[in-house]
């Protein structure tokens, strides 16, 4: 296990594998399938101040090498997550959880982060300023460096746990936004959220998802995600959590060579509920194959 250990913002992970927000619920669904304590951590379903139903259905469209979702941050709201979901997660997961927090205003981010910061199960707060599926919400906030910095400052003022800012790839210059977050006091950066995309149904001649557009994720986005992680790693001193299409242990190694301290596995969990488990189990052999003794040695190794 020492070979796969990494340290993320001062917290040691047994391995760098973290199922990504929105693909792992609050953990307990997957605990019916396998012991999720083998994970490094998991990032729980994006949580907002109020309960949200999300967008109309259909919310899912298949793509050649991935999928589009327009779920729209369906979640029970921060208070019920704390009172109902976290106690359920505690029964099946004894490590630190990454809390993924959404919002529609600085005030909402602050209120949500202040509440979740008090929970002992939470190791990191991952602030999602990048959901592509909520109009006038996270997207606008996460595409402007000044606004991103303002959220970071406000959240840092009310929290004690490490704050990781999750960025959208749907911007011209992701490096400037990452730097703005670092300058404002962020403890880490995670990227990428989904790429805005769409599919059209040839029979109906209409968009497949009811919301017309949604977030594209899966193996098709991996090269884009890798490139952005590489660029952001060059520009900031704080740790980077890499995600976007990771499906195999080799993808994990590649993402870490680009600069990721840890990785999140997203869409892969949806096509194969055992994907994260399989990646963790495959890591030692993949490390041997590429002559890697310790994973922590290779972070940013491609630079």
């Amino acid at each position: 296990m020492d070979r796969t250990q990494v340290s993320l913002c001062g917290i040691t992970l047994d391995n760098p594998i973290i199922p990504a927000s929105g693909t792992f619920g609050y953990g307990y669904e997957f605990a019916e399938l396998y012991d999720i304590n083998i994970l490094g951590s998991f990032s729980f379903k994006g949580t907002t101040g109020e309960a949200r139903f999300g967008n109309p259905t259909p919310r899912i469209a298949e793509c050649q090498a991935g999928m589009i979702n327009s779920v729209g941050l369906q979640n029970p709201g921060i208070d019920r997550v704390i009172s109902e979901e976290l106690p359920k997660a505690r029964k099946c997961f004894n490590k630190s959880i990454m809390a993924n927090i959404g919002g529609f205003s600085i005030e909402e981010y602050v209120s949500n982060c202040e509440k979740i910061d008090k929970e002992d199960q939470i190791g990191w707060i991952e602030v999602n300023i990048s959901c592509p599926n909520v109009h006038g919400g996270g997207m606008a906030l996460g595409t402007d460096p000044e606004m991103a910095a303002a959220i970071v400052k406000a959240v840092k003022a009310v929290t004690t746990k490490p704050v990781i800012i999750k960025l959208t790839p749907n911007v011209t210059d992701i490096v400037s936004i990452a730097k703005a977050c670092e300058d404002a006091g962020a403890d880490g950066i995670s990227l990428i959220n989904t790429l805005l995309g769409m599919r059209i149904d040839l029979k109906a001649k209409k968009p497949v998802v009811a919301n017309k557009m949604g977030g594209y994720s899966g193996p098709g986005v991996f090269p884009v995600a890798l490139r952005m992680v590489y660029q952001v790693y060059d520009a900031v001193q704080i740790p980077v959590v890499g995600m976007g299409g990771i499906t195999t242990a080799e993808d994990v190694i590649e993402m870490m060579l680009a600069g990721a301290t840890a990785v999140e596995v997203g869409a892969a969990n949806l096509t194969d509920p055992f994907a994260s488990k399989k990646i963790i189990e495959a890591l030692p052999a993949a490390m041997d194959k590429y002559g890697i003794n310790k994973l922590s040695d290779i972070i940013g190794g491609a630079h």
Binding site: F24, E29, F53, R59, I60, V71, Q74, L270
Partner: peptide, 26 residues
């Protein structure tokens, strides 16, 4: 309903019911 995962993780197939939001798949 059009599903992503089929086992309750992705929230792709949610619907509203008298007894709250439900996932068609789970």
């Amino acid at each position: 309903e059009r599903m992503g995962c089929g086992f309750g993780a992705c929230m792709g197939c949610s619907c509203r019911t008298v007894t709250g939001y439900k996932r068609i798949c789970k």
